[in-house]
Design a protein around this nucleic acid. Sequence first.
RNA 1: ACGCCUGUAGCUCAGGGGACAGAGCAACGGACUUCUAAUCCGUGGGUCGGGGGUUCGAAUCCCUCCAGGCGUACCA
Length: 564
Amino acid sequence: MMEQYRKTIAGAIAETGVIDPAEAELLLEFPPDASMGDFAFPCFTLARRLKQPPHSIAETLAAKLDGVHLFSKVTSVGPYVNFTISRPLLAQEVLSSVLGEEVEYGHSDTGNGKVVVIDFSSPNIAKPFSVGHLRSTVIGGALGRIYKSQGYEVVGINHLGDWGTQFGKLIAAFKRWGSREQLRAQPVSHLLEIYVKFHREAEKEPALEEEGRLWFKRLEEGNEDARLLWEQFRDLSLEEFRRIYSLLSVEFEHFHGESFYNDKLNEAIKVLENKGLIKESQGALVVDLGEEMPPCMLKKQDGATLYATREIAAAIYRYGQYQFEKMLYVVGADQSLHFKQVFAVLELMGFEWAEKCEHVPFGLIRFEDGKMSTRQGKVVLLEEVLNKAIDLSLDIIKQKNPGLEQKEKVARQIGIGAVIFADLANDRIKDVEFEWEKVLDFSGDTAPYIQYAHARICSILRKEQPWEKTVPGEIYSSPEEERLLVSLSRFPAAVSRSLELNKPSVLARYLLDLARDFNHFYHNCPVLQAEAGLRNARLLLAMAVRVVLARGLRLLGIAAPEEM
RNA sequence: ACGCCUGUAGCUCAGGGGACAGAGCAACGGACUUCUAAUCCGUGGGUCGGGGGUUCGAAUCCCUCCAGGCGUACCA
């Protein structure tokens, strides 16, 4: 919708003859202060080309464009031309697109049904689901919903870490110290316990490492003893993971872990051999990747495969299945080199689709005293974080809204929402330090802030129904109302930019701004107390905000309770 | 040693080459007989890590240095 305004401005400016509409549109920006207008055009580029001072160009343009019916005001301020969209028009368009029923506001069909594969979450079997895995899970989940909203077909794949040397170690550890009863009672924590013990003991007794590698070798060769243990570890872990995914309302199209590709590895290696890309180095099989990168290892000296081998086979399999337009790997930034190598190998193999693969990296979650480490048992369990957040929400509800029904359900929505949002709101590339106080702070820039604004709107709407649905364009006059209309109009852009950058944080920030705008409105513009016409207009505006907040939160995987 | 990422208010962070750099937390002072105070209003707080450069214009782009993080073939 805002496109129309941009195009009009760009077209008019292009009439100067020294700039084409597309370039003019690119130069368009937002004024620093809303009171200055909704769009701004800086005249520096034109000044250079026309060899005239920018302020006089701005004056000329403003004079020429003032009067175009779309705008209520076109003014020049120094070197800028500022455009203010006609308020009645803006109100009409924004409210009817948000509240209209033909197209969901913020959705589009630009994806045109093309497939986007998203590889995300991917926790390791037999290890606890820590807050570290939360990032991949919520970022991947949010991106999936955002892509779907833009008309893509999304295939979410949970590339479970269910294969590799670590399982040899785990089997070795279980053989030595494992207990069947404890495994049944507390599967993941028992496995973690012996895994930690293994690494502690291995420092004193290096032969243990060798034993672990041997067990993985046996596992890959189909040793039944190893296989049975592994299956048990896997099944018990999945049970725990599914519980967490349901709390987070994250869904996957496939749970194809690394082991899924076992029978596809040899074929991939054969293709590489046929192309003469594999060479032997110190008893291992590697693909040479030139000067910039270390070689990519496919088989160890003992013939066992590696992470990268399975990754390559997986990519080939997935392209065969989906002919994806794009494949995103939502995996920590510490694996950047790994993906560079994998993509480079795919390219060497001659797959033109290698360029459709993209690593979507994110920073680590760390403690004050350093990185999390499963091996050292230094982890915070996600379930513990979620439960604490839920408990705290419940306490706050009991204190602030004792009459609320379904307290537990709402507490879950708020607590979990807060945890998800805390992880989504900042640029994913940054490392985050895990601090309990921050995770459990529900004021300020948090999900509860947005949810609260939403609940307040619902509360108003509950008290006044029905009202006139006609959009009363003329009636909005306060800066708070104007601000809200403009903010609402920017929702589709926030969603598409989130997609473009693969950054849910863009949408998260937008929602904070919108909620803030609403709170300003709430405190300055009485709705139910206003005279009839204005009351209807404000109800309609509030309803539109409610729709956008709920829809935006939904895209992030966060619930929008009607009361809290 | 090399490569990638990060450095903005006391703390956590926003800032699509543009107009006086913005929020939240914390601190202090205000606003609940009025649509839910998980809110709002106000105050203080900045050599945008340092130094060069490109540009009419740089927190933003380039170079360099400093600090921190991560990575650098038989883990994932």
